[in-house]
Amino acid sequence: MTVAAIVPERLAAADPAARRLLAQTGAVVLTGLPAHPDSLAVAAATLFGTGLRELYPHRTRRSVDGGAVGLHADSFDIVVDLAGAETRRRHPNEDHVLVMLARQAPSGGESFALDAHAFTDSLPADLRAFLRGVDLDLYGRWAGTRGLPATPRVGRLVEYTRLGRRITRRTDGAVPLHRDPHAARTTTALARLDEEVTGAQAALPRFVLGEGDILVLDNYRSWHGRDPHSGERVAHIQTLRTENA
């Protein structure tokens, strides 16, 4: 197993090198914008320009004495009825995520990130075959959540877009398909993957976000999380899709 850590470089939000660095490394920290949710949209437009296709509603996460948030990729599948029209509020193939730290906790809350492509490529051969070859109900563990479509979202943890871009997913909502004849084997593989991820997470270097910093991640490539913290911590989060999603 390779612990392919990402420690993102800090750049001014208007620096033209930010887009190139994000593409090369999978993550970048943008600085210099007001510590307000509107800055997420400004950062997205500055980074992706005319390549920006869809912004999803920003969400604010407040936690007090919060526990650890393990390595994950941001994605969900939520469609709501808005005045009689189906409206998508989250997308299973959000290809980038922006996380702004609005209020730093008094202690703890350090961030970490992982190059998921490199990490999963280093796993044992049978686990790699599982990631690429087994269909899962990606959000089945959350069945019944309001807004989640009744039709299961079926996919694999490693897939490729129509244009060949790789997606390496990480969601704790994944379960075997309904009546999967190999459900026990699938459940065992998911548990083994969790063990591997937990081991990698413990070995990752931590980095600290300042208030107003925006962590931008390639959501197809990079998994991220944070350590436990004491006191109150506030973050604003926005996911999006670009023309390459």
Rank of each mutant, 00 (worst) to 15 (best):
R206H: 04
G32P: 04
H96S: 04
R10Y: 01
L30G: 01
G84T: 13
E243L: 12
D81Q: 15
V197W: 02
R170K: 14
A183G: 04
P149G: 12
L193E: 02
I237P: 00
D77S: 09
V154I: 15
L163R: 13
T239R: 09
S122Q: 06
V234H: 11
S107K: 13
T120G: 00
G133F: 00
V29Y: 01
V79N: 10
S122F: 04
G231H: 06
A245C: 10
A183H: 06
V158A: 01
V7S: 08
P152Q: 11
E232Q: 08
P37D: 13
P8W: 11
G210E: 10
G67I: 09
T145E: 13
I214V: 14
R89P: 00
L215S: 06
D115E: 07
Q201H: 05
E86D: 12
D77G: 04
G109I: 09
A129H: 06
A102R: 14
S230E: 15
L177K: 11
L82F: 13
R20S: 11
A85C: 14
H117S: 03
L71R: 00
G84W: 12
G32C: 08
R185N: 05
A143C: 03
R179C: 13
L215F: 07
A5E: 08
S107T: 15
R59A: 15
I6Q: 02
A105H: 06
A202P: 00
L52V: 10
M1G: 09
D227R: 14
A203T: 07
D218G: 03
A17T: 09
L114I: 07
L131P: 00
P205S: 14
L101D: 02
G144K: 07
R132L: 14
S63G: 15
H224L: 13
G144C: 09
L47A: 08
E159G: 08
A203N: 02
G84D: 12
E159A: 14
A35D: 04
M1R: 09
A191N: 10
G225Y: 03
R162T: 13
T161N: 02
R226C: 10
G84P: 09
A85L: 15
A183C: 07
F112W: 07
G32E: 06
R185Y: 05
R19K: 12
R192F: 02
V3H: 07
V154C: 07
A45E: 14
E54H: 15
L217P: 00
V7F: 02
D65K: 11
I78R: 12
L190N: 00
L40E: 08
E94P: 00
G32S: 04
D121I: 02
F48L: 10
R156A: 04
Q238Y: 04
G32V: 05
L21Q: 13
D213F: 03
P57N: 15
S122I: 09
Q24A: 15
V154F: 01
R170P: 02
D95R: 01
R62C: 13
W142R: 11
R192K: 12
A189F: 06
V175N: 06
D194V: 11
V134W: 08
H91K: 01
P92F: 04
R165I: 12
P124Y: 12
D81R: 12
V42R: 14
H91S: 07
V97Y: 00
A68N: 02
